[in-house]
Design a protein around this nucleic acid. Structure first.
Length: 443
DNA sequence: TCTGGGGTCCTAGGACCC
DNA sequence: TCTGGGGTCCTAGGACCC
């Protein structure tokens, strides 16, 4: 058998990242089952190993967890400001150690290990530093392709779980010859649908997928999976992308705290947040869309979306809000019409705003009639400055001046009084690293 | 009572144009 | 009334990712 190709890529991934992040500043959470809940304290979105051992699954609504189990777990509301900050610290640490780093997600980074004398040792060292300096335990996968590095990462997680010497075993070099232990559904690029079809064909492991004829994969599953198969064989079809590509769209959506007959305030707030993100990235939106869904858990299957092109790509919240108001009214009219015969009305459970046809704000060509409205956009810049200094929601527009960020228990609700659509968070940890008021006190 | 949020890419089919 | 090929753009739907 030929010697496996040396690894070119490594994937460094924080273990149960949100749970580990909560543990960094709260030692009482270490060694005990920790669960982090998503929007409105709805579903479990992260589980510590101890929580997984209790049989909890990602995505389970917390109210479905049996009471005896719930008594044993420590629950936190998702605190993305904290997680994002710790993630950025990991990235800057990695940039000191490796020539190229691709930020793949909040808890995963690909790095370039090509040409290193001892890639395995380099990754072990990176893992050790992240653990010691930032406090997040990681696993590392190495491979000749990004797909193999991903596979190695999963195998490293599996073997370090059982190992006595967890540090050493948290790094795994995956090769086309040693991936038979990886279930095909755990291959990067194989989701639920493909996994079911592959199983039906008798393809159970990553090695089985790699062994399928190329044409067969191409014909039955498309080019994406065909590339995945190539990468499992050690033939690279993709490289690192150290530069973040320009966004194509920007979405803000939520499940409402309760069912709403009139979701316009909530949608207005999402629009405000979306526009803040837009300006932060130096982008302008050429079109706006809105969608609203009923509550499928109560048998309400209504859902609809509407899009509106803007006369000129804009960064101006008030221009977006004007479009959004029309779109919401149109969807409400459609919902009303669909219920007129039955005499009922539609209650909405979930909705969102999308900004699309994004362009760089500086790349827009001036248009005498359509804009940009530079006066309005300067006003937006001032608004952003004030909100970044005093906190999101300090200042807003009349049509949407209510608060979005997670208020903690006891914190007064700023903004419009009628914001009951927003779920309250019961167990939000302090923003230890991003808010002066939440700095840890040592005494 | 309470059921996550934010993205990308590919493909097929239709409209439209030459 | 019948008859063509080829290109592009757009959209909707389906698959995937974290």
């Amino acid at each position: 058998m030929p010697a496996p190709a040396p690894p070119r890529f490594a994937l460094i991934d924080g273990n149960a990242f949100y749970c580990s992040a909560e543990r960094v500043f709260d030692p009482s959470l270490r060694g005990v089952p920790v669960v982090v809940l998503g929007n409105g304290d709805g579903c479990c979105i992260a589980l510590s190993p101890e929580a997984k051992q209790l049989g909890l699954k990602i995505g389970t609504p917390i109210f479905q967890v049996p009471e005896p189990i719930r008594k044993q777990i420590h629950v936190r509301s998702a605190n993305f400001a904290l997680y994002g900050d710790l993630s950025a610290r990991i990235v800057s640490l990695l940039r000191e150690l490796f020539p190229r780093v691709e930020v793949y997600s909040i808890d995963e980074n690909f790095v370039d290990v090509e040409g290193l004398a001892d890639p395995f040792a380099a990754c072990l060292e990176a893992r050790e530093r992240i653990l010691r300096w930032i406090g997040i335990p990681c696993c590392v996968g190495l491979g000749a392709t990004r797909t193999l590095a991903k596979a190695g990462n999963k195998l490293a997680k599996d073997q370090s779980k059982r190992a006595v010497n967890a540090g050493q075993r948290a790094v795994f070099h995956a090769t086309p010859q040693n991936i038979e232990a990886l279930a095909v559904e755990d291959v990067w690029g194989v989701g639920r649908r493909f996994a079911a079809r592959l199983h039906a064909e008798g393809v159970k492991t990553a090695a089985d997928l790699a062994a399928l004829p190329a044409e067969q994969v191409r014909a039955r599953y498309g080019v994406v999976l065909a590339r995945t198969r190539m990468e499992l064989l050690g033939l690279p079809c993709s490289d690192l992308e150290p530069e973040e590509p320009d966004r194509q769209q920007l979405v803000v959506s939520r499940t409402f705290g309760r069912d709403l007959a009139d979701p316009s305030e909530a949608i207005g707030t999402f629009s405000t947040v979306a526009c803040e993100k837009l300006r932060k990235r130096g982008l302008a939106a050429g079109a706006v869309w809105v969608w609203l869904d009923g509550n499928p858990f109560k048998g309400e299957t209504f859902n609809a979306s509407r899009i509106m092109p803007l006369p000129f790509p804009t960064q101006d919240t008030s221009a977006v809000l004007r479009a959004v108001r029309v779109l919401v009214e149109r969807i409400q009219a459609q919902a009303g019409a669909s219920r007129r015969s039955s005499g009922g009305r539609v209650l909405f459970k979930r909705g969102g705003v999308g900004l699309t046809d994004l362009v760089g704000a500086e790349q827009r060509h001036a248009d005498l009639f359509a804009g940009p409205d530079s006066k309005a956009e300067r006003a937006m810049a001032v608004l952003d400055q004030i909100n970044s200094k005093w906190g999101r929601g300090t200042l807003g527009l009349g049509a949407a001046g209510w608060r979005v960020g997670g208020a903690r228990p006891g914190e007064p609700q700023r903004g419009a009084p009628n914001n009951r659509w927003r779920p309250t968070l019961k167990a939000l940890s302090p923003c230890y690293t991003t808010k002066w008021s939440d700095l840890l006190r040592v005494r």
